[in-house]
Amino acid sequence: MTQDAAPDSAPTHATPERRAIRSFVKRTGRTTAGQTKALNELGPRFLVPYQSSPLDFAAAFQQPQSPQPLVLEIGFGMGEATAHIAALLPDTHFLCCEVHDPGVGALLKRMGEQDLKNIRICAHDAVEVIDHMLPLQCLDGVHIFFPDPWHKARHNKRRLIQSPLIAKLAARIKVGGYIHCATDWQEYAEQILQVLSAEPLLKNTALATHPELLGYAPKPHYRPLTKFENRGLKLGHGVWDIVFERV
């Protein structure tokens, strides 16, 4: 996932058109037969098309009664953690953004196997979804797990978690809601902590509850240890959870 620089001005005839801000890099990958079947059979029910107007959440989740808590997830990969959390929190609705077709198919496949009905997927750039489909203070939480760290310094500007995006998200989280980021790259964890700490609408509650962790949070109970993460921990790699509350 990346976030390219925004255009400074409208293109002219003398300069090539620049790409708009994006929250991702479109990866290539093979979609398996099972993923394709899930896309075809479950996609019409659980995929939410991108639109340039606010999303009707009750209609999207087919629950017109009292609204359920709503969590936005940006970039769910192959959907392992997403399915686990949705099963653990069946009364919470999850709107999940991912543009990688095999990942979308994989999560749909998990949803079918586990009979999960509280997930909706928007296979579109999360920045545009936030800008156009999410009204202010509509979210109870935001999950961003293991975004691409862009290791090389010259590529750091492509990182997803930067001040402009966090400001957009903070404005759309309800007071008392949260944003939860996790990364296995220490330098990126330090940047995430710095960016979230600089957002005036967010507060780091871990500073008061777990001062020994220096601003990082204990892993929340709902986030599972994925196979990839377990492998990294066995090799001595660290994982950092950063959880801030909307004030």
Rank of each mutant, 00 (worst) to 15 (best):
T36W: 02
A126K: 02
Y216I: 12
T92G: 11
S53E: 05
K26D: 06
K234G: 04
L196W: 01
A123E: 08
P7S: 14
K117E: 04
L47S: 00
H237L: 07
N118V: 15
F46I: 06
K26T: 05
F145V: 01
A123C: 12
T209H: 02
K37W: 07
R27N: 08
F24Q: 06
T15N: 12
T205F: 11
K203D: 14
A170Q: 10
Q68A: 10
T92W: 14
Y178S: 14
I166N: 03
R172Y: 11
K174T: 06
L233E: 07
G29A: 10
E80R: 07
P11Q: 12
F61Q: 03
D56M: 10
S53C: 01
N230T: 12
F146I: 10
T28S: 13
L233W: 13
F24H: 15
C181W: 09
D115W: 01
H155I: 02
E73N: 04
G236L: 09
T183L: 09
P147V: 12
S163N: 03
A208Q: 06
A189T: 14
S23I: 09
S23T: 11
V243H: 00
F228D: 00
F57T: 03
G141A: 08
I21T: 10
E187G: 11
N156K: 11
L39S: 05
P147G: 08
Q191N: 14
L235H: 07
H13L: 15
L235T: 04
L165H: 01
A83P: 12
G112Y: 05
L165N: 08
V175R: 08
F24R: 09
L193K: 12
K26W: 00
L116A: 02
Q63G: 01
G176I: 14
P211T: 11
S197D: 11
V195F: 07
I192W: 08
H93Y: 06
I179Y: 15
A198E: 13
T12K: 05
L55G: 01
R45Y: 09
P200N: 15
F76V: 15
L214R: 06
V195K: 08
E187L: 14
L136P: 01
D4P: 00
C138G: 08
T15C: 10
D140N: 13
L136F: 02
E17M: 13
Q63C: 05
P90W: 13
T2A: 09
H221V: 03
A189H: 08
A10V: 11
S52W: 07
G236M: 06
M78G: 02
R158I: 09
L196Y: 01
